[in-house]
Amino acid sequence: MAVPITVVLMIIVLFFVFFMKKRLNFLQNTILYMVMAIITKNYFSIMVMELKLYKNADDSSLFISLLIDREIIIPILIVIFVNYFIEFRAWYKKIVVSIIIIGCLQLLDFFSVLFGVIEFVRWNMFYELLINMSYLLIGLGICKTLLAIRSHWEGQQYDSNL
C-alpha cells in the first residue's frame, strides 16, 4: 500500500512543479532541489544510523517508498513552497502557503509511519513538525543565497520579495 500511494503522490507533485509558475529559473530551482535532497538524505541517514531516533523498514519495497519521499517528494515540496513564497507579496498568502506545505509534509510523515515506512523511536509528530519547519527555513535560506549570488556575481538585479 505504501509504494502505490507514494508513487501517486510523487506523480501529482511532479506535475504540479512542472506546470506551476516559477519565480526562480531552471538552474536555481534545480540547485535548490539538489541541495534540499542532500539535506533530507543526510537527515534520514543521521536519524537512522547515528541518533537511532528513526527505524527504517527492513522490507525493500517500503524502503523504495522512503527513497521516493526523501529524494523526490520532500525536496520538490520545498521547491514549490519557495517559488510561491517569493511570488506572493501579501504576508497572509505567504503564511497560507507555508501552512499548506507544512500540512503536506506532516501528512507525508503520517502516512510513512502508518504504513511502516519509518518507525519513530523516542520521536514524535511534534518534533517532526519542527524539522519540517526547518526544511522550509533552509529552503528560503538557499533561495536567498542563490538570488544574492545572481545579483552580486552575475550583475543581475532581482526582486526577491523575501
Binding site: L51, L53, Y127, L130, M133, L137
Partner: peptide, 17 residues
C-alpha cells in the same frame, strides 16, 4: 522563534533511562 525551536529540538534529543 528559531532559537526556541532549536532548544526544543535539543531537549528532545536528551538521553533516556
Amino acid at each position: 522563534l528559531i532559537i526556541l525551536l532549536f532548544i526544543i529540538l535539543l531537549v528532545s534529543c536528551s538521553p533516556t533511562t
